[in-house]
Design a protein around this nucleic acid. Sequence first.
DNA 1: ATTGGTTCCTGCTGGC
DNA 2: TGCCAGCAGGAACCAA
Length: 284
Amino acid sequence: METVRRGLEGVLVGKRIARLDQRRPDLRIPLPDNFPARIEGRRVVALERRAKYMLARLDDDQVWLIHLGMSGRMGILPAGHDHPPAGPHDHVIFETEDGVMVRFTDARRFGLMTLCSSADLAEHPLIKGLGPEPLAEDFTGERLAAALKGKRTPIKAALLDQRVVAGIGNIYACESLYYAGISPKRSAHTVRGERAGRLVAAIKQVLTAAIAAGGSTLRDHIQPSGELGYFQHSFAVYDREGDTCRHCETVGSAVVNGAPAAVPVIRRLVQSGRSTFYCALHQR
DNA sequence: ATTGGTTCCTGCTGGC
DNA sequence: TGCCAGCAGGAACCAA
C-alpha cells in the first residue's frame, strides 16, 4: 500500500476529483450513500497511509479510506491517451481535473472504499485499535514485547493481528520471522528482550526493502501500480517450499562434523488457515 | 479475554 | 486436452 500511495501522490495531491464513476456498490462493504456526489468536486489535500489503508484527505474534511484487500489495484491512466475499455472488475473509476484517470480494480472484492469525517477517523471501526506502524521510530522490541505479553498464540499469528502491529501481511510475516531466526510456531509471549529486538529489526528491514523495490517499479513508468514489483522475486521463504534455506546454506549449518547433514529445506505449514513458510533448522 | 474457525470472492492450479 | 474442485488470502465476524 505504501508503494501505491507513493505512486498516486503526484497524481492526486492538490488536484480536484472531477468525476467519479461507481460501477458497482458492493465491495467488501457497501460503498457509502451518494458516494460519487460526495467525492466529485473535492480536492485531495493529502494522501496518507495507516496500516494497509490509504487515506485521501479531502478539502471538506472528509477522509476517503481505501483498502486493496488481496487483489485490489489502482491503475493510473495518463491524460491525453486512449485507454483500454473498463473491465468487469473495474469497480470505481475517477478522473482528476487534469484528466488523469484512476481505476480501482479488484477481482475478489476483498478491498473497500468508504468515507468518514476527519474528526471521526481515529474512532472509525476500521482504524481504531490498529497497532503501531512498523516503520515508526517508536515501534521497538520493547513495544512489541509488551503487545505480545500474555499471548499464547503462535508468533506468526500474532504478527498478522493488526492490533499488535499494523500493516503486516502473510508474506512479510513469514519473511520477517525468517530473517529474525524465529520459529513461526513459537509462543508469542516468549518473543521478548533481544529476540523481540531482532524481530523488529527484521520487520523494518523487510518492509523497507519491499517498499524500495516496489518504488523502483513505479519510478520507471506510470502504469497500474500496487504490483508486487521486483520484491516478489527476492522472497527468502515465501512460496519457496522445498527450496534450500539460503541462510543455512551460507553459514554452513548443513554441515555436521565435516559431513553434509540433511539439507535444510524451506517447509510449509498452515497456521490459522494461512500458509507459513520457514526453515526449521535455523528458525527457533 | 483470547483464540481458532468460517466467510466473503474469483483466478489460478493440480489432479484426473 | 480439458474440466473442475480446491486453494489462496485480509480481516470482520462468530463461537467456544
